[in-house]
Computed example of a mutant assay.
Amino acid sequence: MEINNMQSSFVLKTNDLHSQKVLKTPAQAEASFKAAFKDALNNVNQLQQESGQKTQQLVTGQIDDLHEVMIAGQKASVTLQATVEVRNKVIEAYQEIMRMQV
Rank of each mutant, 00 (worst) to 15 (best):
K38Y: 10
D65C: 08
F37M: 15
A29P: 00
N15S: 05
I3Y: 05
A40N: 10
D16N: 07
A36V: 09
G73W: 01
E85W: 08
V44F: 03
N45M: 09
I97N: 12
N42T: 04
V44T: 02
A76R: 00
G61D: 05
L17P: 03
L66M: 13
L41R: 06
E96N: 12
Q48N: 11
T14K: 06
Q48G: 07
G52V: 00
Q20M: 11
V84T: 08
E85V: 11
K13W: 00
T79L: 13
A76I: 02
Q95L: 13
H67S: 14
G61W: 10
K34F: 08
V78F: 14
G61E: 05
E2S: 13
E30G: 05
L47S: 12
R99Q: 11
I3D: 09
A93Q: 02
H67V: 14
V78W: 05
K34D: 12
R99K: 15
N45Y: 14
D39E: 14
Y94V: 11
V69W: 12
L58E: 06
Q28L: 13
M100L: 06
M6T: 03
V84P: 02
A82M: 13
A40Y: 09
L41P: 00
S8F: 11
P26Q: 01
D65K: 06
A36L: 13
V102Y: 01
V86P: 02
F37S: 11
K75Y: 03
